[in-house]
Lab assay of single mutants.
Amino acid sequence: KELVLALYDYQEKSPREVTMKKGDILTLLNSTNKDWWKVEVADRQGFVPAAYVKKL
Score class of each variant (00 low, 15 high):
Glu17Ser: 06
Lys34Ile: 11
Thr19Leu: 03
Thr19Lys: 04
Ser31Ala: 14
Gly46Phe: 08
Trp36Ala: 02
Lys13Ser: 10
Thr27Glu: 13
Val39Gly: 00
Leu3Ile: 09
Trp36Cys: 07
Arg16His: 13
Tyr8Ser: 08
Asp9Val: 03
Arg16Phe: 13
Leu29Phe: 04
Ala42Tyr: 14
Thr32Tyr: 10
Ala6Met: 02
Ile25Cys: 06
Val53Leu: 15
Glu17Pro: 05
Thr32His: 12
Glu12Leu: 08
Glu40Gln: 15
Thr27Tyr: 13
Tyr10Cys: 02
Leu5Cys: 09
Val4Lys: 00
Leu26Thr: 01
Pro49Cys: 04
Pro15Ile: 10
Phe47Tyr: 15
Leu28Tyr: 02
Tyr10Phe: 08
Val53Pro: 01
Lys1Gln: 12
Trp37Phe: 07
Gln11Leu: 13
Pro49Tyr: 03
Trp36Asn: 02
Asp43Leu: 09
Ile25Lys: 05
Arg16Ala: 13
Gln45Ser: 12
Glu17Met: 05
Gly46Asn: 01
Tyr52Pro: 01
Lys13Trp: 04
Asp24Glu: 12
Lys34Phe: 08
Lys54Met: 15
Pro15Asn: 11
Ala6His: 01
Leu3Ser: 08
Met20Asp: 02
Leu29Gly: 01
Val39Ala: 01
Ala51Arg: 15
Ala42Phe: 15
Asp9Phe: 05
Asp35Trp: 15
Thr32Ser: 15
Val4Trp: 07
Asp43Gln: 10
Ala6Leu: 02
Ala42Asn: 14
Leu7Pro: 00
Asp35Asn: 14
Gly46Met: 05
Lys21His: 10
Lys1Pro: 13
Lys21Tyr: 11
Asp43Ser: 12
Lys13Phe: 05
Lys54His: 11
Lys55Gly: 05
Phe47Gly: 02
Lys1Thr: 13
Ala51Pro: 10
Lys34Tyr: 09
Asn30Asp: 15
Gln45Cys: 11
Lys54Glu: 14
Ala51Tyr: 09
Leu56Met: 10
Asp24Gly: 04
Thr32Leu: 11
Ala50Asp: 02
Lys55Tyr: 09
Asp43Lys: 09
Leu56Glu: 04
Val53Gln: 00
Ile25Asp: 00
Asp43Asn: 14
Val48Ala: 03
Leu7Cys: 08
Tyr52Glu: 02
Ile25Gln: 05
Thr32Lys: 12
Lys22Tyr: 05
Ser14Cys: 09
Thr32Gln: 14
Trp37Gln: 01
Val18His: 03
Thr27Leu: 13
Val41Met: 14
Asp35Tyr: 15
Val41Gln: 15
Arg16Tyr: 13
Arg44Phe: 05
Lys38Asp: 04
Lys13Gly: 08
Lys34His: 12
Met20Trp: 00
Arg44Lys: 11
Glu12Val: 07
Val4Ile: 08
Trp37Asn: 02
Pro49Glu: 02
Glu12Thr: 08
Asp24Val: 05
Lys1Gly: 11
Gln11Cys: 10
Leu7Trp: 04
Val18Tyr: 04
Lys38Tyr: 15
Asn30Glu: 15
Gly23Cys: 08
Asn30Leu: 10
Thr19Glu: 04
Trp37His: 03
Glu12Cys: 11
Val48Glu: 00
Lys13Met: 13
Asp35Phe: 15
Arg16Lys: 13
Lys55Arg: 14
Leu5Lys: 08
Pro15Lys: 11
Ser14Met: 07
Glu40Cys: 11
Asn30Thr: 08
Thr19Gln: 05
Leu56Phe: 11
Leu26Tyr: 12
Lys22Asn: 04
Trp36Arg: 03
Asp35His: 14
Pro15Glu: 13
Pro49His: 03
Thr27Phe: 13
Tyr52Ala: 11
Ala6Phe: 02
Trp36Phe: 07
Glu2Trp: 12
Asp43Arg: 08
Lys13Cys: 10
Ser31Glu: 15
Gly23Ala: 03
Lys55Ala: 08
Leu28Ala: 02
Pro15Cys: 10
Lys21Leu: 08
Arg44Asn: 06
Glu17Ala: 06
Ala42Trp: 11
Glu17Gln: 10
Leu3Lys: 12
Thr27Pro: 15
Ser31Leu: 05
Phe47Trp: 15
Ala42Val: 11
Pro15Leu: 09
Met20Leu: 09
Arg16Val: 12
Pro49Arg: 04
Val53Ala: 04
Lys1Asn: 10
Glu40Asn: 06
Gln45Trp: 08
Leu3Trp: 14
Leu5Asp: 01
Lys22Gln: 10
Lys38Ser: 08
Lys54Ile: 15
Gly23Lys: 02
Gln11His: 13
Ala50Pro: 04
Leu7Glu: 04
Lys21Ala: 09
Ala51Val: 10
Ser14Asn: 14
Tyr10Asp: 01
Asp43Tyr: 09
Asn30His: 08
Leu26Ala: 08
Thr27His: 10
Trp36Tyr: 08
Val48Trp: 01
Tyr10Met: 00
Lys21Asp: 04
Pro49Leu: 04
Leu28Pro: 01
Lys38Ile: 15
Leu7Met: 10
Ser31His: 08
Lys1Cys: 12
Leu28Asn: 00
Glu12Lys: 13
Gln45Val: 15
